[in-house]
Amino acid sequence: MPSRTPHRFRRTAALLTAAAACLALAGCSSSESSSATPATPSASSGRDGAASGPSEPAGPAGSARPSRTREADRPGPVHVSIPSIGVRSTLMELGLNADGTVEVPPAEKGMTAGWYTGGSLPGTPGPAVLIGHNDTRFGRAVFHDLKDIREGAEVLVRDGAGTTLRFTVTGKETVSKKAFPTRRVYGPTKGSTLRLITCDGEFDAEGHPVDNLIVYGALA
């Protein structure tokens, strides 16, 4: 384990660099369809078809090609469920857009959440980031009720091998996309942690939500 620590922290530093550079997610407008302008991962809420955060989930990654934390070729997550708010969704893989922003699920797949592959693999040290829309131009989306989640709630993440990991919600916060807490979301953690991100708040002049809702969790 000790020998892997340096690599993990180098990856995290790269992620933070990228995220800081993309702090403006912009993608929740009806004119957008699959990606938002990076900033911090965010999912759309309201009128558009792409998630938005500060603009687009910003990925903490320094490279255009996301690097996932895999140990012993462990399979990635394929499903998430949150019993307390009725969420059940398969997970698509999300990387980075050409401009370095984090991808978000396309508007037409608003009821499907995504796992940012540039972050940690659920179950390994560090934050695993799941992004989902609040609403899209097609209507209510997968994380529409995320605002109602409470501390202590259970989030179940299943991987491709059928193993289910149980995370417990430790807190949540609504933040302005202009002041996204990059280090708090993407910074290194000793244990396996989880971040669920979607859009929140009022709409700006372009029809994009101005805030992000972030839910924090830890492996139970």
Results as ranks from 00 to 15, higher is better:
S192P: 13
R10C: 07
L25I: 11
V102A: 14
E32I: 07
P77I: 03
H133W: 05
N97Y: 00
I85C: 04
F143E: 04
D204V: 01
R140V: 12
A26C: 08
G201L: 06
T12L: 00
P60Y: 05
C199F: 04
P41Q: 02
A14F: 10
P54Q: 09
V175W: 00
T101C: 14
I82K: 06
R47K: 09
C199W: 00
A20W: 08
R150N: 14
A161K: 01
D99M: 00
E202I: 07
A51F: 03
A141D: 11
L146G: 02
A179D: 15
A64Q: 09
A98T: 13
P6G: 04
A141H: 03
H7R: 09
G160A: 14
V210Q: 14
G123V: 01
E56Q: 03
M111G: 04
H144L: 05
S89Y: 03
K172C: 08
K177N: 06
V169A: 10
E108W: 12
L156M: 15
A98L: 11
G95Q: 11
M92G: 14
T193P: 04
T136R: 11
A107G: 15
S192M: 08
D135G: 07
A113E: 01
V78N: 06
A220H: 12
L130P: 05
A13P: 00
V102H: 14
L194V: 09
V102T: 10
E93W: 02
A113L: 07
G114I: 05
A21E: 13
P106S: 15
P77A: 14
L146N: 05
S44I: 03
G217L: 11
G217T: 15
R137H: 04
G46Y: 02
C22W: 01
L94I: 10
R195C: 04
I82F: 12
S67R: 10
T37M: 04
L194S: 08
G126A: 11
G191F: 06
A179W: 07
L25S: 14
D145C: 00
N134F: 02
A153Q: 03
L25C: 12
S84G: 08
P127T: 12
M1Y: 08
P41Y: 07
A64M: 05
P181I: 10
S44N: 12
A50I: 04
P77W: 14
C28K: 06
G114A: 11
P209V: 06
G162K: 13
E173N: 09
T69P: 00
M111C: 10
R11H: 10
T37H: 14
V102K: 04
V129W: 02
A179L: 09
G119I: 02
Y186F: 15
L165Y: 08
A218H: 07
M111V: 07
G217A: 11
M111W: 08
V80F: 08
C199T: 09
A205L: 09
G171R: 05
P188L: 12
A13M: 04
R4I: 04
A128T: 14
T101H: 07
A24V: 06
A205I: 05
A14Y: 11
D204C: 01
M92C: 08
S120T: 15
L156H: 15
F138L: 15
R150T: 10
